[in-house]
């Protein structure tokens, strides 16, 4: 038996909206630890890792480890019928091929349930070792969204360079070049507005802006975003999910031919 109840159902809606552009089908792995999901985009350029810890749910029952295979476009269609303030319950029998979504309005005057057919998905699972990154940037997620969107008007790729001076986002295109520099800025009364740059080594990497823009679909999950970079590793763009876990996007760099 698998049954979990999430009071802040809007979190689930936001997570699915944030990843459905990159991933069509995915397994949600359920264990006593919580719900997790790992999936690559169809080109194997980006990887998504989601964790929702069990203690963030009002009720969490998972008798044995199960993988629930689902089409994210269908999950999105179903979750769109839930109100933003609804409490969401997910349940599945051990041997069943259906996942039941139950949506309860806050004052319990409307309760809906929708059964969704599950899929058998074979997915490649990658082991991502913990790494010490050369540079870690924490900045307002809205600012990162704006930078990615603005640079997309000029070019297709972004060079992210971290130095003592700050973090520079650069692009070049047919109409010209653009650079945006963000400096460390610790706004003590509003920690969510601050930009914090921790750098062990200067690092500069090139990425496809199309993917970066897709990651920023997660902006509503968190007021800040953490970007981790090392010269020989994919970039990690992480949105914390309040008291529950995280949504991380890994993106392989582009290199000079």
């Amino acid at each position: 038996m698998f049954e979990v109840r999430l009071v802040q159902g809007s979190l689930l809606k936001k997570v699915v909206e944030a990843i459905r552009e990159l991933v069509t089908d995915a397994n949600i792995d359920c264990s006593s630890t919580g719900l997790s999901l790992q999936a690559m985009d169809s080109s194997h350029v980006a990887l998504i890792a989601l964790l929702l810890r069990s203690d963030g749910f009002e009720h969490f029952r998972c008798d044995r480890n199960v993988s629930i295979g689902m089409n994210l476009a269908n999950v999105s269609k179903i979750l769109r019928t839930a109100g933003n303030d609804d409490i969401i319950t997910l349940k599945a029998d051990d041997d069943g091929d259906l996942l039941t979504f139950m949506f309860e309005s806050p004052n319990q005057d409307r309760i809906s349930d929708i059964e969704m057919k599950l899929m058998d998905i074979k997915s490649e699972h990658l082991g991502i070792p913990d790494a010490e990154y050369e540079a870690v940037i924490k900045m307002p997620s809205q600012e990162f969204l704006r930078i990615c969107k603005d640079l997309s008007n000029i070019g297709d790729t972004v060079v992210i360079s971290v130095t003592k001076e700050g973090v520079k986002f650069s692009t070049r295109g047919d109409i010209g070049n653009a650079n945006i520099v963000c400096r460390q800025n610790t706004t003590l009364d509003k920690p969510d507005d601050s930009t914090i740059i921790q750098m062990k080594e200067p690092v500069s990497l090139t990425f496809a802006l199309r993917y970066m823009n897709s990651f920023t679909k997660a902006t509503s999950l968190s007021s800040s975003v953490t970007i981790s970079m090392s010269s020989d590793l994919p970039i990690v763009v992480e949105y914390k999910i309040a008291d529950m876990g995280y949504l991380r996007f890994y993106l392989a760099p582009k290199i000079e031919d």
Partner: peptide
């Protein structure tokens, strides 16, 4: 020109 690397070049399949 830049070549796009794949995520599977960095992490091992478990």
């Amino acid at each position: 020109a830049c070549v796009q690397l794949s995520i599977t070049e960095f992490y091992r399949t478990t």
